[in-house]
Amino acid sequence: MACGRPKLRVGPSQREGGFTDSVPATVSRMENQSMRITALIVCLPLCAFGAATAQGLLLQRAGSQAENRPVIPKASKGDQCVADTEIMRKDHMSLLNHQRDETVIEGIRSEPYSLVSCVNCHAQTDTSGQAIRIDAEGQFCESCHSYAAVKIDCFTCHAAKPAAMEVIGNAEPHLMRDNPHTLVSYLLNKEANE
């Protein structure tokens, strides 16, 4: 069995002086040197210019990146999210997916990572007090998702606005405090905690 590296075969041209044979005899040593100097004179400023331009471009790009960072609106309610910002930024979809299965299949509805809760705290209201869809341009979900170029499918089925106040007002009163999805329960619980 042939193991290990195959031995290199040396070709006839390399053995007999190699490439020098192909240089025409008319080019003298002196001419060769002067050509090298000329090449250096031409290339050095070109290299310096290239480096400066590249650096400029990089700086410009970094600047524009900072300018294009998504402006994420602050949550309209609450002081604290259900987990730290770093965790939510990286893992919110895993948390939501995990709880989604628990809720739909098993009927567990008391855990914190609910899409309804996200909407309740993060949806903004316009100047007339009307809720804005959380997936509208510049809103909490959309601002970051458009920056990251990730399509949000949640809100083709799920409500993108919190439940309307009049609906909550008509709800059975004993449920208002306990239902974590209502603004009333949030306000009552906040008051109780304070």
């Binding site: 259900v82 987990a83 730290d84 965790i87 995990h98 628990e102 098993e106 009927g107 567990i108 509805r109 008391s110 855990e111 914190p112």
Partner: peptide, 23 residues
């Protein structure tokens, strides 16, 4: 299993929310 593994590995402050029993 996933839930238990998650509970064990993550130290999220709000994971101790009351666990409601499944259907």
């Amino acid at each position: 299993g996933l839930g238990l593994a998650g509970m064990a590995s993550m130290s999220y402050s709000l994971l101790e929310v009351k666990a409601k029993t499944p259907a």
